[in-house]
Each structure stands twice: as C-alpha cells, then as structure tokens.
C-alpha cells in the first residue's frame, strides 16, 4: 500500500466511526456545537497520530504480554498533554468538553489503530494512518454537529445563520438527536456499498 492508500483507507474506506462503529460515545457527546467538535477532533488527531507513531517506533521492543499496558500509557500521556494544553490556552472550550478530553484515552479508535495497524507497521505509515483515522473521526463529528448546531441553535460556529423566525429544535441540542443523526449518517453512507457486496 502506498502512503496515499493508507491515508484514504483509514479516513474513508475503513472509517472508524461509520465503518467500524468505534468511538461513537464521544461522537454523541460533544457534537452539540461545531467548535467543540472541531477542538475534540483536533485533540483526537493529535493523540492518534503521535501515539500510533510512538507505538510503532517501540513495536520491536514492547513485550507482547504487556503491550496493552504500554499502549494505554502512551495514549494517556498524549491525552493529558492535550488536556493541559486546552486548560491553559482554551479554558472556555476545555470547560465545555468537560470530561470528554480525558476520555479520549478510552476512545476505542486509538486502541483499535494501535492494535490493528501501528503495532505491525513502520512509524511513518502509522503516523499517516493515525492522522487519517483522526480526520475520519473529525469529519463525522463536524457533519453531525453542523446539523445539530444549525437546527438547535440556528448558528454555525457561533455565527447566527437562521434568524429569529426560526424555531429552535430543542431535541437537536439534547443527546437523543446525536443518536438519530449518527444512525442516519451511517445508513446513508453504508447503504449503496452493501448492494455492491451482494
């Protein structure tokens, strides 16, 4: 596989959210505002890329039976860096995201990529794979939060798009709408492919 293939594969073809249905917990939780989704996405891209890279660098040296422990340690370290960074420089967003930044540690996408890709492939490929998977995740978050913020608050990134005439849909700012939106998204993306397989 070329580098481009690795990237496209992890971003679209094998997209963690709509293809592997991983990491949907945080995808449901932080998608009420686009800015929250964007920052969360960037946090995940950073963590995924660097943890994949590090795990791949160390893959020859990590003893097999404690590999999960080592992976978690590496992932957690990068997540804490993201958390501290947000607290120091973007306090408002850090407050909005609440515990979900810390919970990136348990995001299945990151462990998934570590197990499936970076523990078997060279560092640069793993880095690209990590960035790709992170972008794929961010893409889903942005799509869902776009719809939720537009209908729920009438804004995009905080700028008013729909004026006072628009009746805000309360359901869109609450958790259930995230379930609907994610389900619809997965349905739309996966339905044409299924026929091809048959």
């Amino acid at each position: 596989m070329t580098k481009k293939d690795i990237f496209l594969n992890s971003t679209f073809t094998e997209n963690s959210v709509w293809k592997q249905i991983l990491g949907i917990c945080s995808a449901l939780a932080v998608t009420n505002l686009m800015i929250n989704s964007l920052v969360m996405g960037l946090g995940v891209i950073f963590t995924l890329a660097l943890s994949s890279f590090t795990i791949s660098l160390l893959r020859e040296y990590i003893p097999k039976r404690i590999r999960m422990m080592v992976q978690t340690l590496i992932i957690a370290s990068y997540v804490i860096i993201v958390d501290l960074f947000l607290k120091a420089f973007l306090p408002e967003i850090s407050k909005n995201l609440g515990p979900y930044v810390g919970l990136i540690i348990t995001n299945c996408i990151i462990m998934g990529r570590a197990e499936a890709f970076s523990s078997k492939n060279p560092p640069v490929d793993s880095l690209i794979d990590g960035i790709g998977a992170g972008l794929g995740y961010t893409l889903v978050l942005i799509i869902i939060s776009f719809v939720r913020e537009l209908f729920g608050f009438g804004t995009i990134f905080g700028f008013t798009i729909l004026g006072d005439w628009w009746t805000k849909w309360s359901i869109m700012v609450m958790a259930p709408s995230a379930f609907f939106m994610l389900a619809i998204l997965i349905w739309i993306i996966n339905s044409p492919k299924k026929e091809k397989v048959k």
């Binding site: 404690i66 370290s77 804490i80 607290k87």
Partner: peptide
C-alpha cells in the same frame, strides 16, 4: 524481568515528560 524493566523505564520516561509539561502550564492554568 524484561517486561518489568521495560514498563518501569517507559513509565518513568513518559511521567517525566508529563511532569515537565504540567509545570510549564501550571502557573497559567
């Protein structure tokens, strides 16, 4: 023994990086 040795080394390494980063941002936070 290697497993334990490896875990201790890597933990110490990452904890020191984190501590440094924490000390850098602590005052600002």
């Amino acid at each position: 023994f290697y497993s334990i040795f490896f875990m201790v080394i890597i933990t110490a390494f990452f904890i020191s990086i984190l501590s440094a980063f924490y000390l850098l941002t602590e005052k600002k936070v």
